[in-house]
Design a protein around this nucleic acid. Structure first.
Lengths: 187, 187, 187, 187
DNA sequence: CATGAATGAGCGTTCATTCAT
DNA sequence: TATGAATGAACGCTCATTCAT
């Protein structure tokens, strides 16, 4: 039941937004009563936190898994991370959209926790960029922090528009974005 | 009065989110009563629509102004548009954040109107990219639509993190992002 | 309207108790809606506080009025205060019962304020007793504080049982209690 | 288990009040589940009734025990009853406070039963007073019923303020109150 | 133009109670 | 004996909106 609540909530939060979705909406969809919801979650905000925490934790784990593999180049490592973000958004679009849009509705305390982890995710990219610069793979005139913001921006933004039914496969998008970022669009 | 309502609303919507901000919150800040609000706006949603419409209209106008100038290259034109987005987010951060985050709370009908204009903004970029490809300025293996998504993604994302008090000036950010997009980060 | 809310609330709080009386109960009785209640009171607790504050303030004022009059003896002054308590309970029975029974439902902060005033009321009695002892009117072997507790106990308790329709008039009760306390029941 | 439920409930009812204490609060304290509670008690109200019944029954029994002893005077008998009330409040403060404050939350039917027993307790005092009057020990100008109300008032009220850690021992309080009532405070 | 009183629908949450196991 | 999942009714409270003045 708990996992069903999470599943339905994500769909509803994605469609209507967190604050516009009522507990009633959620339990109606599951044909249970509000009491049941509160048997599993102490508050609506706690549910949102659970969703956020699971999302970012899994993503961070996957990122560390990538980081700890061995690579022939830092550029390849960056491509792998671009792939991680894109495939995650494609595969868990609803969760991703909830994650990106509804963080504001967490409590101060919870926001802090999530922000820290999100920051860590970006800092890990920044570190790879720094290594790439140090090893002469990446140009040194562009600030690693801004590059990392650029990478998460370009990839994360796709949660706003990417459609599974579209013409471009995830792998193609990974390829295009990787080329854009690494070699630019200039001829 | 009407413009003061808009001004305060934007600040509050940015800080607390649209659905968490009450009409009471808005009028309290202006030291008027709710009646006054409803004299100027027929509903809370209408106010949000006004904010959205003004924002995207101004942005589109600025974009057309850029497009209609003459350029030595399409790349320069793209840089100009990157500059437009960045400076707008820096200068009108609150409006930008409300625009990006709260669109969902518009009515179906209004959403359609705004989405169309947002799409037009991106399509205008796509057109420039297409021209750039046609004239051999931009590589032809990356799909103009995806490139345009990439450009708006990388730039728009900055509303999530850019801080005026930070180390990087808007112009530096324009420069970095322009280089990233046009020539890539590879050494 | 505000005063009607107070009036009805006191009756309901007396009859059903504070926590068993719902806002709905109150507004139903007045044929208005819950919104109306919250237009006048920010919370149920705030209403209870208003009731408490008005009650104890008026009582204290009446007590000071008595204290500041001139008397032929301290005993007469004590009788006057016994009269004050008894007549107050008889005349404002509902308020008195709410005051004595529901204080616990105030917030910590509010409880402190009310407790202080209640204590002051008793201390004022203690002071009279002390003066009475000092001037040889009252025996000195019984502790003024305990005497004051005795006086408020014997009189306040009547909120638990006194009925206007009973055989004993308030004035008779004042007389009986004054005699009991001042001269004892021993023959 | 049943007695542990009673014990904990009394403490919680005293601290938070009956209607503010939830079954969950009670069972949490005992590290069992709500099912357990309902195995022993059919309802929350039934538990309250049990507490009330046990309290007043024991008190009445103790009172009869006093009444059935032989005394040299009716005044001594009254003192013994004052002692009973005071020591009971001191020793079973929590139960006493619950008894005095929460009766209102019993059902109509149960209230009637308890009220009857409480009345009996007072009537027994009234009878002693009457006998005292008849035998010339107690003055006959003060109504035995009012005197009995005075006695229970002055003594019962101590549940509102008496603190075990205070300066006055129970026995001292008994002495003071006995003197106040029997011989008055006049010099 | 603006106010202030009032509405009514809905929300998040609590909780006594039930019941199959 | 005891649990744990679920119910359903109610509660305190919020808020966009209306409207007579």
């Amino acid at each position: 039941m708990k996992s069903e609540i999470v599943k339905q909530s994500i769909l509803l939060f994605e469609k209507k937004g967190f604050s516009t979705t009522s507990i009633q909406d959620i339990v109606d969809e599951l044909d249970v009563t509000k009491g049941t919801f509160y048997y599993y979650y102490s508050s609506k905000e706690q549910l949102l936190m659970d969703i956020h925490e699971e999302y970012i934790t899994k993503l961070l784990e996957a990122q560390y898994e990538i980081i700890n593999r061995s690579y022939t180049s830092y550029k390849d490592q960056l491509i792998e991370i671009i792939r991680l973000i894109i495939t995650d958004i494609v595969e868990n679009g609803s969760s991703a959209r909830v994650f990106f849009r509804e963080m504001r509705h967490l409590s101060e305390k919870h926001i802090k926790i999530i922000k820290e982890k999100r920051k860590q995710f970006r800092l890990n990219i920044e570190s790879i960029v720094e290594e790439g610069i140090k090893h002469g793979e990446i140009r040194d005139d562009l600030r690693p922090d801004m590059i990392s913001f650029g990478i998460v921006g370009i990839t994360n933004w796709s949660y706003n528009w990417y459609k599974t039914e579209g013409e471009v496969t995830p792998e193609q998008l990974v390829s295009i974005y990787s080329k854009m970022i690494l070699t630019g669009i200039e001829k």
